[in-house]
Design a protein around this nucleic acid. Structure first.
Lengths: 192, 192
DNA sequence: CGATTCTTTGAAAACAGTCAATCTGTGTGG
DNA sequence: CCACACAGATTGACTGTTTTCAAAGAATCG
Protein backbone atom coordinates (compact mmCIF):
# COMPACT_ATOMS: atom_id res chain seq x y z
CA UNK A 1 0.00 0.00 0.00
CA UNK A 2 2.75 2.40 0.91
CA UNK A 3 4.51 1.81 -2.40
CA UNK A 4 1.53 3.38 -4.19
CA UNK A 5 1.93 6.44 -2.05
CA UNK A 6 5.68 6.49 -2.53
CA UNK A 7 5.21 6.29 -6.28
CA UNK A 8 2.70 9.14 -6.16
CA UNK A 9 4.82 11.43 -4.07
CA UNK A 10 8.15 10.74 -5.74
CA UNK A 11 6.59 11.83 -9.04
CA UNK A 12 5.67 15.18 -7.49
CA UNK A 13 8.39 16.00 -4.98
CA UNK A 14 11.90 14.82 -4.28
CA UNK A 15 12.33 13.09 -0.99
CA UNK A 16 15.10 10.88 0.27
CA UNK A 17 14.52 7.25 1.15
CA UNK A 18 15.08 8.16 4.74
CA UNK A 19 12.30 10.72 4.55
CA UNK A 20 9.97 8.20 2.97
CA UNK A 21 10.91 5.85 5.76
CA UNK A 22 9.93 8.44 8.34
CA UNK A 23 6.63 9.09 6.62
CA UNK A 24 5.91 5.39 6.45
CA UNK A 25 6.82 4.82 10.09
CA UNK A 26 4.07 7.21 11.15
CA UNK A 27 1.47 5.97 8.69
CA UNK A 28 -1.22 3.43 9.26
CA UNK A 29 -2.87 1.26 6.63
CA UNK A 30 -6.61 0.98 6.56
CA UNK A 31 -9.10 -0.95 4.48
CA UNK A 32 -12.76 -0.24 4.31
CA UNK A 33 -15.69 -1.84 2.52
CA UNK A 34 -18.18 -0.12 0.25
CA UNK A 35 -20.80 1.81 2.23
CA UNK A 36 -18.67 1.96 5.36
CA UNK A 37 -17.74 5.31 6.87
CA UNK A 38 -14.36 6.80 7.62
CA UNK A 39 -15.89 9.76 9.42
CA UNK A 40 -19.33 10.47 10.78
CA UNK A 41 -20.98 13.78 11.50
CA UNK A 42 -20.23 14.81 15.08
CA UNK A 43 -16.85 13.12 15.22
CA UNK A 44 -13.61 15.05 15.02
CA UNK A 45 -11.52 14.42 11.93
CA UNK A 46 -8.16 13.73 13.53
CA UNK A 47 -6.48 12.06 10.60
CA UNK A 48 -5.36 12.95 7.17
CA UNK A 49 -5.81 10.19 4.66
CA UNK A 50 -4.42 9.26 1.31
CA UNK A 51 -6.45 6.93 -0.87
CA UNK A 52 -4.44 4.12 -2.41
CA UNK A 53 -7.43 2.31 -3.87
CA UNK A 54 -11.13 2.92 -4.30
CA UNK A 55 -13.36 5.94 -4.05
CA UNK A 56 -14.59 8.05 -1.15
CA UNK A 57 -17.00 10.90 -0.89
CA UNK A 58 -17.44 13.74 1.56
CA UNK A 59 -21.03 14.72 2.14
CA UNK A 60 -23.37 16.51 4.50
CA UNK A 61 -26.99 15.91 5.32
CA UNK A 62 -29.74 18.40 6.05
CA UNK A 63 -32.59 18.14 8.54
CA UNK A 64 -34.79 16.32 6.01
CA UNK A 65 -32.14 13.67 5.49
CA UNK A 66 -31.10 14.83 2.03
CA UNK A 67 -27.47 14.22 1.20
CA UNK A 68 -25.18 16.77 -0.45
CA UNK A 69 -21.87 15.65 -1.85
CA UNK A 70 -19.08 18.15 -1.39
CA UNK A 71 -16.30 16.12 -2.91
CA UNK A 72 -15.40 12.81 -4.49
CA UNK A 73 -11.88 11.43 -4.24
CA UNK A 74 -10.34 8.43 -5.95
CA UNK A 75 -7.02 6.64 -5.48
CA UNK A 76 -3.99 8.93 -5.46
CA UNK A 77 -5.90 11.69 -3.75
CA UNK A 78 -6.12 13.01 -0.25
CA UNK A 79 -9.20 13.20 1.87
CA UNK A 80 -10.28 14.69 5.17
CA UNK A 81 -12.85 17.10 6.41
CA UNK A 82 -10.54 20.09 6.29
CA UNK A 83 -12.66 22.15 8.63
CA UNK A 84 -12.77 19.63 11.43
CA UNK A 85 -9.22 18.50 10.79
CA UNK A 86 -7.84 22.01 11.03
CA UNK A 87 -10.02 23.43 13.78
CA UNK A 88 -10.49 20.35 15.92
CA UNK A 89 -14.23 20.96 16.03
CA UNK A 90 -16.76 18.16 15.52
CA UNK A 91 -17.38 17.60 11.86
CA UNK A 92 -20.66 18.38 10.16
CA UNK A 93 -19.74 16.05 7.33
CA UNK A 94 -19.41 12.36 6.61
CA UNK A 95 -16.83 10.44 4.65
CA UNK A 96 -18.12 7.26 3.08
CA UNK A 97 -16.60 4.62 0.82
CA UNK A 98 -18.38 4.26 -2.51
CA UNK A 99 -16.18 1.30 -3.41
CA UNK A 100 -14.08 -1.04 -1.32
CA UNK A 101 -11.13 1.17 -0.58
CA UNK A 102 -7.64 1.22 0.84
CA UNK A 103 -5.89 4.15 2.40
CA UNK A 104 -2.97 5.38 4.43
CA UNK A 105 -3.66 7.57 7.41
CA UNK A 106 -1.63 9.88 9.60
CA UNK A 107 -2.60 11.50 12.85
CA UNK A 108 -2.68 15.27 12.51
CA UNK A 109 0.13 15.75 15.05
CA UNK A 110 2.27 13.26 13.21
CA UNK A 111 1.66 14.79 9.84
CA UNK A 112 2.40 18.25 11.18
CA UNK A 113 5.63 16.86 12.53
CA UNK A 114 6.46 15.33 9.16
CA UNK A 115 5.87 18.62 7.38
CA UNK A 116 8.20 20.36 9.80
CA UNK A 117 10.89 17.74 9.34
CA UNK A 118 10.57 17.41 5.58
CA UNK A 119 10.53 20.75 3.76
CA UNK A 120 9.79 19.11 0.41
CA UNK A 121 6.65 17.60 1.91
CA UNK A 122 5.60 20.91 3.39
CA UNK A 123 6.16 22.59 0.06
CA UNK A 124 4.17 19.95 -1.77
CA UNK A 125 1.22 20.11 0.59
CA UNK A 126 1.16 23.85 0.20
CA UNK A 127 0.82 23.50 -3.56
CA UNK A 128 -1.95 20.98 -3.03
CA UNK A 129 -3.87 23.43 -0.88
CA UNK A 130 -3.43 26.07 -3.55
CA UNK A 131 -4.79 23.83 -6.28
CA UNK A 132 -7.67 22.89 -4.07
CA UNK A 133 -8.45 26.57 -3.55
CA UNK A 134 -8.49 27.20 -7.27
CA UNK A 135 -10.74 24.22 -7.86
CA UNK A 136 -13.17 25.45 -5.23
CA UNK A 137 -13.20 28.94 -6.65
CA UNK A 138 -14.06 27.54 -10.05
CA UNK A 139 -16.78 25.39 -8.59
CA UNK A 140 -18.32 28.43 -6.94
CA UNK A 141 -18.18 30.23 -10.25
CA UNK A 142 -19.86 27.31 -11.97
CA UNK A 143 -22.55 27.18 -9.32
CA UNK A 144 -23.58 30.79 -9.90
CA UNK A 145 -23.05 30.98 -13.65
CA UNK A 146 -23.77 27.65 -15.30
CA UNK A 147 -27.06 25.89 -15.95
CA UNK A 148 -27.61 22.45 -14.48
CA UNK A 149 -27.04 20.87 -17.88
CA UNK A 150 -23.74 22.70 -18.34
CA UNK A 151 -22.60 21.63 -14.90
CA UNK A 152 -23.46 18.04 -15.71
CA UNK A 153 -21.67 18.04 -19.07
CA UNK A 154 -18.59 19.64 -17.58
CA UNK A 155 -18.57 17.16 -14.75
CA UNK A 156 -18.52 14.27 -17.21
CA UNK A 157 -15.80 15.92 -19.21
CA UNK A 158 -13.60 16.98 -16.32
CA UNK A 159 -14.07 13.95 -14.11
CA UNK A 160 -14.79 10.99 -16.37
CA UNK A 161 -13.04 8.57 -14.04
CA UNK A 162 -15.25 9.63 -11.18
CA UNK A 163 -18.39 9.85 -13.25
CA UNK A 164 -18.33 6.29 -14.43
CA UNK A 165 -17.77 4.89 -10.97
CA UNK A 166 -20.35 6.82 -9.03
CA UNK A 167 -24.13 6.33 -8.92
CA UNK A 168 -26.03 9.08 -10.66
CA UNK A 169 -27.97 10.17 -7.61
CA UNK A 170 -24.66 11.06 -5.98
CA UNK A 171 -23.64 13.05 -9.02
CA UNK A 172 -26.98 14.85 -8.68
CA UNK A 173 -26.24 15.59 -5.03
CA UNK A 174 -22.87 16.99 -6.09
CA UNK A 175 -24.36 19.22 -8.77
CA UNK A 176 -27.17 20.48 -6.60
CA UNK A 177 -30.15 19.00 -8.44
CA UNK A 178 -32.52 16.15 -7.64
CA UNK A 179 -31.88 12.74 -9.15
CA UNK A 180 -35.06 13.06 -11.23
CA UNK A 181 -33.87 16.32 -12.71
CA UNK A 182 -30.50 14.83 -13.50
CA UNK A 183 -32.21 11.93 -15.18
CA UNK A 184 -34.17 14.30 -17.41
CA UNK A 185 -31.11 16.40 -18.14
CA UNK A 186 -29.39 13.26 -19.36
CA UNK A 187 -32.25 12.32 -21.62
CA UNK A 188 -32.31 15.81 -23.03
CA UNK A 189 -28.54 15.96 -23.51
CA UNK A 190 -28.50 12.51 -25.08
CA UNK A 191 -30.47 13.23 -28.25
CA UNK A 192 -28.44 16.12 -29.58
CA UNK B 1 -3.06 54.29 5.65
CA UNK B 2 -0.40 51.96 6.97
CA UNK B 3 -1.51 52.57 10.55
CA UNK B 4 -4.85 50.93 9.75
CA UNK B 5 -2.99 47.87 8.55
CA UNK B 6 -0.67 47.93 11.53
CA UNK B 7 -3.64 48.10 13.86
CA UNK B 8 -5.29 45.18 12.03
CA UNK B 9 -2.26 42.96 12.08
CA UNK B 10 -1.08 43.71 15.59
CA UNK B 11 -4.47 42.56 16.86
CA UNK B 12 -3.98 39.21 15.15
CA UNK B 13 -0.26 38.46 15.31
CA UNK B 14 2.70 39.73 17.26
CA UNK B 15 5.30 41.49 15.22
CA UNK B 16 8.10 43.78 16.25
CA UNK B 17 8.21 47.39 15.18
CA UNK B 18 11.18 46.53 13.03
CA UNK B 19 9.12 43.90 11.24
CA UNK B 20 6.30 46.35 10.69
CA UNK B 21 8.89 48.74 9.33
CA UNK B 22 10.07 46.15 6.86
CA UNK B 23 6.52 45.42 5.76
CA UNK B 24 5.82 49.09 5.32
CA UNK B 25 9.01 49.72 3.37
CA UNK B 26 7.86 47.27 0.71
CA UNK B 27 4.25 48.41 0.61
CA UNK B 28 2.68 50.90 -1.71
CA UNK B 29 -0.38 53.01 -1.05
CA UNK B 30 -3.08 53.19 -3.63
CA UNK B 31 -6.37 55.04 -3.93
CA UNK B 32 -9.06 54.26 -6.38
CA UNK B 33 -12.43 55.75 -7.18
CA UNK B 34 -15.76 53.97 -7.33
CA UNK B 35 -16.16 52.00 -10.55
CA UNK B 36 -12.44 51.90 -11.27
CA UNK B 37 -10.65 48.58 -11.65
CA UNK B 38 -7.70 47.19 -9.78
CA UNK B 39 -7.44 44.21 -12.09
CA UNK B 40 -8.91 43.43 -15.48
CA UNK B 41 -9.49 40.09 -17.11
CA UNK B 42 -6.44 39.10 -19.11
CA UNK B 43 -3.96 40.86 -16.86
CA UNK B 44 -1.77 39.02 -14.40
CA UNK B 45 -2.48 39.68 -10.75
CA UNK B 46 1.02 40.45 -9.51
CA UNK B 47 0.10 42.15 -6.29
CA UNK B 48 -1.50 41.28 -3.04
CA UNK B 49 -3.65 43.98 -1.61
CA UNK B 50 -5.06 44.93 1.74
CA UNK B 51 -8.07 47.21 1.83
CA UNK B 52 -7.80 50.06 4.31
CA UNK B 53 -11.00 51.78 3.22
CA UNK B 54 -13.89 51.07 0.90
CA UNK B 55 -15.24 48.00 -0.80
CA UNK B 56 -14.03 45.87 -3.70
CA UNK B 57 -15.50 42.97 -5.56
CA UNK B 58 -14.01 40.14 -7.57
CA UNK B 59 -16.13 39.08 -10.51
CA UNK B 60 -16.08 37.24 -13.82
CA UNK B 61 -18.09 37.77 -16.95
CA UNK B 62 -19.47 35.22 -19.37
CA UNK B 63 -19.76 35.42 -23.17
CA UNK B 64 -23.12 37.16 -22.92
CA UNK B 65 -21.66 39.87 -20.72
CA UNK B 66 -23.34 38.73 -17.53
CA UNK B 67 -21.35 39.40 -14.39
CA UNK B 68 -20.85 36.91 -11.57
CA UNK B 69 -19.51 38.10 -8.26
CA UNK B 70 -17.15 35.68 -6.59
CA UNK B 71 -16.31 37.76 -3.57
CA UNK B 72 -16.85 41.08 -1.85
CA UNK B 73 -14.21 42.53 0.44
CA UNK B 74 -14.38 45.57 2.69
CA UNK B 75 -11.75 47.44 4.66
CA UNK B 76 -9.53 45.24 6.83
CA UNK B 77 -9.62 42.43 4.30
CA UNK B 78 -7.27 41.11 1.68
CA UNK B 79 -7.97 40.86 -1.99
CA UNK B 80 -6.37 39.38 -5.07
CA UNK B 81 -7.26 36.93 -7.75
CA UNK B 82 -5.65 33.98 -5.99
CA UNK B 83 -5.44 31.88 -9.11
CA UNK B 84 -3.60 34.44 -11.21
CA UNK B 85 -1.56 35.65 -8.26
CA UNK B 86 -0.35 32.18 -7.41
CA UNK B 87 0.08 30.71 -10.89
CA UNK B 88 1.19 33.81 -12.76
CA UNK B 89 -1.37 33.10 -15.48
CA UNK B 90 -3.57 35.83 -16.92
CA UNK B 91 -6.61 36.35 -14.79
CA UNK B 92 -10.12 35.47 -15.88
CA UNK B 93 -11.52 37.81 -13.25
CA UNK B 94 -11.86 41.50 -12.56
CA UNK B 95 -11.47 43.47 -9.37
CA UNK B 96 -13.55 46.62 -9.19
CA UNK B 97 -14.14 49.26 -6.55
CA UNK B 98 -17.75 49.57 -5.44
CA UNK B 99 -16.89 52.57 -3.30
CA UNK B 100 -13.97 54.98 -3.34
CA UNK B 101 -11.32 52.83 -1.74
CA UNK B 102 -7.85 52.89 -0.30
CA UNK B 103 -5.43 50.01 -0.14
CA UNK B 104 -1.91 48.88 0.49
CA UNK B 105 -0.25 46.66 -2.08
CA UNK B 106 2.80 44.46 -2.17
CA UNK B 107 4.43 42.81 -5.17
CA UNK B 108 4.22 39.06 -4.93
CA UNK B 109 8.01 38.65 -4.72
CA UNK B 110 8.17 41.18 -1.95
CA UNK B 111 5.40 39.62 0.03
CA UNK B 112 6.93 36.18 -0.36
CA UNK B 113 10.14 37.65 0.96
CA UNK B 114 8.32 39.18 3.91
CA UNK B 115 6.71 35.87 4.78
CA UNK B 116 10.10 34.20 4.75
CA UNK B 117 11.64 36.89 6.93
CA UNK B 118 8.75 37.20 9.36
CA UNK B 119 7.52 33.84 10.67
CA UNK B 120 4.60 35.44 12.49
CA UNK B 121 3.39 36.87 9.20
CA UNK B 122 3.75 33.55 7.45
CA UNK B 123 1.85 31.86 10.23
CA UNK B 124 -0.89 34.42 10.09
CA UNK B 125 -1.32 34.22 6.32
CA UNK B 126 -1.57 30.47 6.61
CA UNK B 127 -4.46 30.78 9.03
CA UNK B 128 -6.10 33.23 6.68
CA UNK B 129 -5.91 30.75 3.83
CA UNK B 130 -7.41 28.09 6.07
CA UNK B 131 -10.34 30.27 7.02
CA UNK B 132 -10.85 31.16 3.42
CA UNK B 133 -10.96 27.49 2.53
CA UNK B 134 -13.59 26.81 5.15
CA UNK B 135 -15.66 29.74 3.95
CA UNK B 136 -15.52 28.48 0.37
CA UNK B 137 -16.46 24.97 1.40
CA UNK B 138 -19.49 26.32 3.21
CA UNK B 139 -20.45 28.43 0.24
CA UNK B 140 -20.31 25.37 -2.00
CA UNK B 141 -22.50 23.53 0.46
CA UNK B 142 -24.97 26.41 0.48
CA UNK B 143 -25.02 26.49 -3.31
CA UNK B 144 -26.09 22.87 -3.59
CA UNK B 145 -28.34 22.65 -0.57
CA UNK B 146 -30.07 25.97 0.10
CA UNK B 147 -32.91 27.62 -1.78
CA UNK B 148 -32.34 31.06 -3.26
CA UNK B 149 -34.36 32.62 -0.46
CA UNK B 150 -32.31 30.87 2.21
CA UNK B 151 -29.09 32.00 0.56
CA UNK B 152 -30.36 35.55 0.51
CA UNK B 153 -31.46 35.57 4.14
CA UNK B 154 -28.18 34.05 5.26
CA UNK B 155 -26.23 36.55 3.25
CA UNK B 156 -27.98 39.43 4.99
CA UNK B 157 -27.42 37.83 8.33
CA UNK B 158 -23.80 36.85 7.83
CA UNK B 159 -22.65 39.89 5.90
CA UNK B 160 -24.82 42.82 6.97
CA UNK B 161 -21.98 45.29 6.54
CA UNK B 162 -21.51 44.20 2.96
CA UNK B 163 -25.19 43.90 2.20
CA UNK B 164 -26.08 47.45 3.04
CA UNK B 165 -23.26 48.89 0.98
CA UNK B 166 -23.69 46.91 -2.22
CA UNK B 167 -26.32 47.30 -4.96
CA UNK B 168 -28.82 44.48 -5.05
CA UNK B 169 -28.00 43.36 -8.54
CA UNK B 170 -24.50 42.56 -7.35
CA UNK B 171 -25.87 40.58 -4.45
CA UNK B 172 -27.96 38.71 -7.01
CA UNK B 173 -24.85 38.00 -9.07
CA UNK B 174 -23.18 36.69 -5.94
CA UNK B 175 -26.06 34.42 -5.04
CA UNK B 176 -26.51 33.07 -8.55
CA UNK B 177 -29.94 34.46 -9.36
CA UNK B 178 -31.12 37.26 -11.63
CA UNK B 179 -31.81 40.68 -10.19
CA UNK B 180 -35.50 40.27 -10.94
CA UNK B 181 -35.63 37.06 -8.97
CA UNK B 182 -33.83 38.63 -6.04
CA UNK B 183 -36.29 41.49 -6.10
CA UNK B 184 -39.19 39.06 -5.91
CA UNK B 185 -37.51 37.01 -3.20
CA UNK B 186 -37.22 40.17 -1.15
CA UNK B 187 -40.87 41.05 -1.59
CA UNK B 188 -41.82 37.54 -0.60
CA UNK B 189 -39.50 37.45 2.41
CA UNK B 190 -40.64 40.91 3.52
CA UNK B 191 -44.24 40.12 4.35
CA UNK B 192 -43.70 37.27 6.74
C1' DC C 1 -32.85 69.21 -13.86
C1' DG C 2 -31.54 65.45 -16.78
C1' DA C 3 -28.98 61.30 -17.18
C1' DT C 4 -27.63 57.30 -15.36
C1' DT C 5 -27.95 53.62 -12.27
C1' DC C 6 -30.70 50.81 -9.56
C1' DT C 7 -34.99 48.40 -8.34
C1' DT C 8 -39.39 46.68 -9.11
C1' DT C 9 -43.35 44.71 -11.73
C1' DG C 10 -46.06 41.91 -15.13
C1' DA C 11 -46.77 38.09 -18.19
C1' DA C 12 -45.21 34.11 -20.56
C1' DA C 13 -42.05 30.41 -21.03
C1' DA C 14 -38.48 27.46 -19.37
C1' DC C 15 -36.76 24.91 -15.73
C1' DA C 16 -36.68 22.17 -11.47
C1' DG C 17 -38.91 19.87 -7.57
C1' DT C 18 -42.26 16.52 -5.63
C1' DC C 19 -44.66 12.32 -5.29
C1' DA C 20 -45.87 8.01 -6.93
C1' DA C 21 -44.97 4.35 -9.89
C1' DT C 22 -42.23 1.41 -12.70
C1' DC C 23 -38.12 -0.64 -14.63
C1' DT C 24 -33.43 -2.47 -14.36
C1' DG C 25 -29.59 -4.59 -12.63
C1' DT C 26 -26.98 -6.72 -8.70
C1' DG C 27 -26.01 -9.50 -5.03
C1' DT C 28 -27.10 -12.41 -1.11
C1' DG C 29 -29.28 -16.10 1.38
C1' DG C 30 -31.70 -20.23 1.01
C1' DC D 1 -28.45 -21.37 -8.97
C1' DC D 2 -32.61 -19.20 -8.36
C1' DA D 3 -35.61 -15.93 -6.19
C1' DC D 4 -36.22 -12.10 -3.86
C1' DA D 5 -34.84 -7.92 -1.88
C1' DC D 6 -32.63 -3.80 -2.64
C1' DA D 7 -30.22 -0.09 -4.73
C1' DG D 8 -30.28 2.64 -8.66
C1' DA D 9 -32.44 4.91 -12.69
C1' DT D 10 -36.26 6.52 -15.22
C1' DT D 11 -40.92 8.33 -16.25
C1' DG D 12 -45.40 10.87 -15.81
C1' DA D 13 -48.32 14.31 -13.92
C1' DC D 14 -48.43 18.16 -11.31
C1' DT D 15 -46.75 22.12 -8.71
C1' DG D 16 -43.66 25.56 -7.68
C1' DT D 17 -39.68 28.44 -8.86
C1' DT D 18 -36.75 31.06 -11.86
C1' DT D 19 -35.68 33.21 -16.17
C1' DT D 20 -36.64 36.19 -19.87
C1' DC D 21 -38.16 40.28 -21.99
C1' DA D 22 -40.25 44.58 -21.81
C1' DA D 23 -41.51 48.37 -19.22
C1' DA D 24 -41.72 51.59 -15.76
C1' DG D 25 -40.80 53.52 -11.14
C1' DA D 26 -37.14 55.24 -7.59
C1' DA D 27 -32.89 57.04 -6.29
C1' DT D 28 -28.54 59.24 -6.99
C1' DC D 29 -25.19 62.27 -9.00
C1' DG D 30 -23.17 65.72 -11.60
Amino acid sequence: MFDIFKQYLSERASLTDKEFGLIQSLSKENKIAKREFVLREGEVSRELLFITKGLLRLFRTDVKGNEYTLRFAIENNWMSDRESYLTGNPSNSNIEAIEDSGMLTWKKEDFDFLKKEIPALQQFMKILVTMHQITNQNRIYASISHSAEEKYLRFIEEHPSIFNRVPLHMVASYLGVTRETLSRIRRHAAHK
